[in-house]
Amino acid sequence: MYEERGSRIDGAVVWTRTAHPSAYPVLPDGCMDLLWSEGRLLVAGPDTHAHVPGGGAAWAGVRFGPGFAPVFFGVPAHELRDRRVELADLWGAAESRRLAERIGEAADRAAELEAVALRRAARTGPPDPVLQAVVRHLDAGGTVRGAADAVGLGARQLHRRALDGFGYGPKTLARVLRLQRALALVRRGDAYAVAAVAAGCADQPHLAREMRAMTGLTLGAYEALANSETPIPSGSSTTA
């Protein structure tokens, strides 16, 4: 079973997945995660395609919205794109081992993982406000050019900032956010054609092509998973 709740960390959610033999695809959403499972701490970078996690293990995670995680982890997002890495590779083996042991001994591992993240976030400071403005503009259906104009950056400057903050360029982020908007409408029960146009696609075939390209799923297959008894994750929240 997968569950999530809002976090005390700005722009983040806390989630858990109990041990389950089935693996559900994690779809691209621009997010990055701090993960704990079976005594290990890992980092999930931003995905450009669906990731199918290994089944059987229990997980806890803190998922950071687009642009929030690079300052937290201390590494540009593009270095972690489509990757799952040990936290020790970023923060050092001793620190990662100490934190993993603390979380493993806690009665509520998800809460302790969040507490670890809160302490780290208090030291690292806020995310880039320019990138947060870009996310808001694109998630509202705005264009990349409009986002660049809104924050006062040229196209090349915005692309460089986006690579560091999101893991990929603003055009890719816009596609990812558009797909997530459409899928939220599908989960709500909207017809595919209605969801496609409302999210910013030209029509239903356009949405279907984007779905195939970024997830490998048809809309019908996704809807069947979304309506199953075990909810699928809504973000980059599990690892193999």
Rank of each mutant, 00 (worst) to 15 (best):
144 V>W: 09
115 A>R: 09
21 P>H: 10
73 F>N: 12
199 A>G: 00
117 A>L: 11
143 T>L: 11
54 G>Q: 07
120 R>K: 07
135 V>D: 01
160 R>E: 08
137 H>P: 02
95 E>D: 14
16 T>M: 05
140 A>F: 12
104 G>N: 01
171 K>G: 15
235 G>Y: 09
240 A>P: 14
148 A>I: 07
105 E>P: 10
74 G>V: 05
126 P>G: 03
36 W>L: 02
34 L>M: 09
206 H>Y: 04
33 D>Q: 01
56 G>F: 05
95 E>G: 07
102 R>S: 14
112 E>C: 07
105 E>L: 13
160 R>S: 15
161 R>E: 08
131 L>C: 03
92 G>Q: 00
181 R>K: 12
37 S>F: 15
120 R>I: 09
150 A>V: 05
187 R>S: 04
15 W>C: 12
229 E>R: 05
21 P>Y: 10
108 D>R: 04
82 D>R: 02
74 G>W: 12
75 V>M: 01
111 A>T: 03
26 V>D: 14
20 H>F: 13
45 G>H: 02
66 P>W: 00
5 R>E: 12
134 V>Y: 00
18 T>E: 13
196 A>G: 01
169 G>R: 01
161 R>I: 06
117 A>E: 11
157 Q>R: 14
170 P>D: 01
10 D>P: 10
236 S>F: 06
138 L>A: 06
139 D>L: 10
48 T>L: 14
31 C>I: 05
203 D>I: 05
181 R>H: 11
184 A>E: 08
121 A>M: 06
132 Q>E: 09
111 A>D: 12
90 L>H: 09
66 P>G: 00
87 L>V: 00
167 G>C: 01
